[in-house]
């Protein structure tokens, strides 16, 4: 478990990093927290010619207010995001989900950008990004472009990132007023990648009904899986046991997971429905009613 030979650069600035990416392109790998990349290197499953270490770049780790929402630098440690007061006040769903990511040790190294760029199908953050409507800032040496969550995750462990591009920032739009939220998951052990995870965001109408519902699942497809039919069924409705059961059926019917040694496709389909219903009930209990 020793990596194959590779070259190593540790740029000090974003520009230097992008310049290195421009030069080496697909022969290069960016190193963020290393929690996914380093094992791949050690097992020689990844054999980049050069590793570009982002850890010395000062201005890639931040959480700051941006037009009513927040902007999160790609190198922000997952643990820092979890502890961030701004994120806690505006996106408690993200904090709740982060607690399911590995263990504190992992999150202290692992980054927000690394998790999203790595795009593990069972990772929690992509589902959170999906329901929060996150936008991804992708930069190369010449330009920046902005991609929606729906367009960022393009396949199994693949994203819209080009070989010369770096994810620099994640932008979360202002949270709607009166939201109810929940994140829940089933993993084989605490801290494992999800067998199935469910993120729910309900936008309340002030009367206890959902004006809008967003559901996204981890572990049941290559990226975060939205279930539009369930979201439609919820729109304008009050969440009741019966409606939750209906959503459960829709979700189990709609998702198309794959099986692996940890759980079959059937298991995941079933549990996606179960978790959808549970998360819905929990999210609805947080919906504020106008007084």
């Amino acid at each position: 478990m020793k990596p194959a030979p590779f070259r190593y650069v540790a740029p000090r600035t974003r520009a230097e990093a992008l310049d290195a990416l421009r030069r080496y392109g697909s022969d290069a790998k960016l190193l963020a927290g290393g929690q996914s990349l380093v094992p791949l290197l050690a097992m020689r499953l990844a054999r980049p010619g050069i590793v570009i270490d982002l850890n010395r770049i000062g201005d890639l780790a931040y959480v700051r207010p941006a037009r009513g929402g927040v902007a999160i630098g790609a190198m922000t440690r997952q643990r820092a995001a979890e502890d961030d007061p701004l994120i806690a006040s505006r996106y408690p769903l993200m904090v709740a989900a982060l607690r399911w990511v590995g263990h504190p040790q992992i999150r202290t190294r692992g980054t927000i950008g690394g998790s999203l760029a790595h795009a593990d199908p069972a990772a929690e953050l992509p589902a959170v990004a999906a329901v929060l409507g996150a936008r991804f800032v992708l930069a190369n040496a010449r330009r920046e472009r902005i991609v929606d969550a729906a367009d960022f995750f393009t396949g199994y462990l693949t994203t819209a990132l080009g070989p010369d591009e770096m994810l620099t920032e994640i932008r979360l739009p202002p949270p709607p007023e009166r939201t109810g939220w929940a994140f829940t998951e089933v993993a084989r052990r605490h801290g494992d990648f999800a067998l199935v995870g469910a993120a729910v965001l309900l936008v309340g109408d002030g009367e206890g009904r959902c004006a809008e519902a967003r559901l996204a699942f981890a572990g049941v497809g290559y990226g975060p899986v939205r279930v539009p039919e369930a979201e439609r069924a919820l729109a304008g409705e009050r969440v009741t046991e019966a409606l939750a059961a209906e959503v459960r059926r829709i979700v189990s019917r709609s998702v198309e997971p794959e099986g692996d040694i940890h759980a079959t496709a059937d298991y995941r389909r079933h549990v996606a429905g179960v978790l959808a219903a549970r998360a819905l009930i929990e999210a609805a209990s947080r919906l504020e009613v106008r007084t």
Binding site: P39, R189, H190, G191, D192, I261
Partner: peptide, 16 residues
Amino acid sequence: VLTQTFMDYLLPTASE
């Protein structure tokens, strides 16, 4: 062998 890492071969931890 499909379980060749501790991501796949699951040892119980303090949480379990």
